[in-house]
Amino acid sequence: MPNEQDRVRNVTEALRAVAAQDVSLGPSSAVEARLLREVRSIARTRRRRRITVVTLAAAAVLAIAVAVPWKRSADNAAAGPQPSTSASRGGEVATAFFPLTYSSLPISNAQLVRVQVPRSALASFGLAPIDVPAAAAGGTASATVSADVLVGEDGVARAVRFVSP
């Protein structure tokens, strides 16, 4: 005649037997296929978004370098503002951010995109090439300088700064 302990032991053993028999049970491969499609769709969406942001950032930089030369003036070139510099990542030195055309738009989830721009773009912001230390061009008279473009989630560039590595 089983006592309480025996009954509990019997139930526990019975449950272990059920668990052992069920261990190979799982959903069909159709469920996995459906979920994998979702994972791939996420990856595709992320890739597309990244490409869009980089493309728009590049376009914004191009606009800076090519379509805004009117900002350059003799005065600015001669006695333009000395950019305030600040330490950036990894010991880099960067100018302050210069606002771009759409800088007043609200911004969320901004990304900083590092690009190379023609050295002549510095003049568009009233900076003489000397304002970005020569190290920015690796100590040589490189045709390009590094710049960080602040791009919003909407892909619109808000500001740019020039960086000396």
Partner: peptide, 9 residues
């Protein structure tokens, strides 16, 4: 997984 890594999923 949320970045779309199939292997992690």
């Amino acid at each position: 997984i949320r970045r779309g890594d199939e292997e992690a999923f």
